[in-house]
Design a protein around this nucleic acid. Structure first.
Lengths: 367, 367
DNA sequence: CTGAAAGCGCTTACAG
DNA sequence: CTGAAAGCGCTTACAG
């Protein structure tokens, strides 16, 4: 078993390189950061390069940060990295964007632990992070912890009383587009299985549902809205009430609810989409893409939320006057609403999300 | 909108504290790290404390690391943080354990991007990490990238030709325990839907299945083993062949396959567990805990893999002579095998996993 | 065109 | 019991 000696013989430093190349450390620093002004002789340059590779020199990022007075860290506090893939997508987006600008992510996971949160924030602050992204896996209102005021801070997938920039998904437009997926197939009695949990998702998606109905000239019927726990069990249990109302299409608060609904319908010998068309929310791939039939849904743009969070933090994007950046939730059409008009899943890339973010910027709400 | 000034007026430093308290910086450093030998007067100590809180002083971790010559970073390279919750659980475990020892996780996500991998490793090395955990979401053999040799390195949920310590799940015992869940209910014709993908999971779980049958005195029948793609679709498609063989219980390569199997059985009017009992693998909560009926399965110990990775890296745990640390996969019993003998899910905590890791240490295999 | 020197914020012997 | 000094590995004016 190879055991790398970590009482290493001493790391190779810039001075070693300088000595090996027969130049000063300043010269090495200059070519390393290939500074414009630096006029270093071609052969000196070559000797330096050679020494660097021969000695296997690696710059010391911390020494560099120390002297330049600013670290290249961005802190990311996440509340549930282990329970859902959602936090992972935020991290992925944040990291890609941070990297693009020479920053590195310092991730602190807070699995509902208050003490860990304090510790985590202290840790980030002691590393003199450029700023911190405070993120939640589920869109909600948060109490921003103390110490965060000492640093730049952007909220991601959450918002607060405090006057902090917040990047959040566009629940209203998402709910509207989900409903439209059904209306476009001619469904007129469209049920909505909402969550029982008060949240921006609950209020926003309901608003979107109502907006879509209104735009289609369909009167809102409260009897078609069923509150249920936002899991498979909730969807399953909602089936009876929905069928009683004679719905032909159902918009579910999330994909898990839709999965339960599928089971309930099947138990009654009904099929999707012929008897009842179904649309979910979240685009949780492991479920939505693999139900029978695959589930039409609306994607939560976690990756884009992470990207946008970093951009706001670095001052590359500015939030609206209300301090919000609203990111669109792109619809993903699959077979659960009938023959798809387009067979490929809608592409969810940066440009698409950015487009929808702008498109919905005039509609900042959902709290 | 509050915009924290990041051209900050200059961070408060130890010298500021020293000046404010009327002592030397050494004195401040001493009380800050409450060094044993340090004899600082009680009142000086008090003045220092007061100055620290009044000025809101935060130590600079990077300066500290620089002078002590060792950083408190542990690097974690993950290959798919965004696609599954699995990587998140590894990160969670690694972070908890790292934190416990005063280390902080520097996470680098590699979503299948070779270039990003090189960049990421360079980044970690330049931060002079104490070592790096190279992890995959799916247990497999990997090619360890170049630069990693420059640092201590532990493989997590993967292994390599190279002579590196590897922390991996116990696929064999997992497969055996999953099969036992069915045998214990009296099933004698037990099918196994394995994956088509060659992998330690494929070979190990099959071995476990065979071991369990043998221990129960049941002859292995190759016709009962169906290879299928490891997703819902694979499970659904396997139903016909399984029923043809007259199975009464099925062990599925993973929970997603089990989910597809449920659908296939239901389409034929069969019920779980009365007509066919089902067991999965992975314990992917969002699915397993919410199927109808909830799915018995075997948990992949991602959290514990992360913990163990850090422990091996820090030299707190030693791998076996073959360089492996094998972590157990605890069975989680739910209703899909019939009335549960114990109603609560088996607890998957550190001690349990550690126990099973030891318990299976004499059984290092699966490649 | 290149080198010597100061300094980033700390810690740790070493003097007093 | 406490302070002055050197040094961690860098960068950046500033001299030659």
């Amino acid at each position: 078993m190879r055991r790398t000696d970590h009482e290493s013989p001493r790391a190779v430093t810039m001075r070693d390189v300088a000595r090996a190349a027969g130049v000063s450390v300043s010269a090495v620093s200059l070519v390393l950061n290939n500074k414009e002004g630096a006029r270093i002789g071609a052969e000196a340059r070559a000797r330096i390069q050679e020494a660097i590779t021969r000695l296997g020199y690696r710059p010391n990022a911390m020494a560099k940060d120390l002297v330049t007075g600013q670290s290249r860290f961005i802190g990311l506090v996440a509340d549930a990295i282990a329970s859902t893939p959602f936090a992972g997508q935020i991290i992925h987006g944040a990291q890609d964007e941070a990297w693009r600008h020479g920053y590195v992510l310092l991730v602190a996971n807070i699995e509902g632990n208050q003490d860990a949160e304090h510790e985590a924030i202290a840790m980030l602050l002691e590393h003199k992070v450029r700023g911190v992204l405070y993120s939640t896996w589920c869109h909600r209102k948060v109490e921003v912890p103390q110490g965060l005021g000492e640093s730049d801070c952007v909220l991601v997938n959450c918002y607060a009383e405090a006057d902090l920039p917040a990047v959040v998904p566009d629940e209203v437009t998402g709910g509207r587009d989900a409903t439209r997926l059904l209306l476009a197939r001619g469904h007129r009695r469209v049920g909505f299985v909402n969550t029982t949990t008060p949240s921006p998702a609950r209020e926003g998606r309901l608003q979107g549902y109502r907006d879509a109905l209104e735009a289609a000239g369909i009167a809102f019927d409260p009897a078609l809205v069923i509150d249920a726990q936002p899991e498979q069990e909730g969807g399953y249990d909602a089936v009876a009430a929905l069928l009683e109302q004679g719905v032909t299409g159902v918009f579910c608060h999330n994909d898990r609810v839709a999965m339960g609904l599928y089971d309930g319908l099947r138990d009654r010998g009904l099929t999707v989409p012929d008897d009842v068309a179904v649309v979910g929310f979240d685009n949780q791939e492991v479920i939505a893409a693999h139900l029978r039939p695959p589930l039409s849904t609306v994607a939560l743009p976690h990756y884009e939320l992470g990207v946008a969070g970093v951009r706001v933090l670095l001052g590359l994007d500015a939030p609206g006057p209300d301090g919000r950046v609203i990111v669109g939730c792109p619809p993903v059409e699959r077979a659960s609403v009938g023959a798809t008009r387009q067979y490929a899943d809608l592409v969810i890339d940066g440009s698409a999300a950015r487009r929808s973010r702008r498109g919905s910027a005039d509609r900042p709400r959902d709290d």
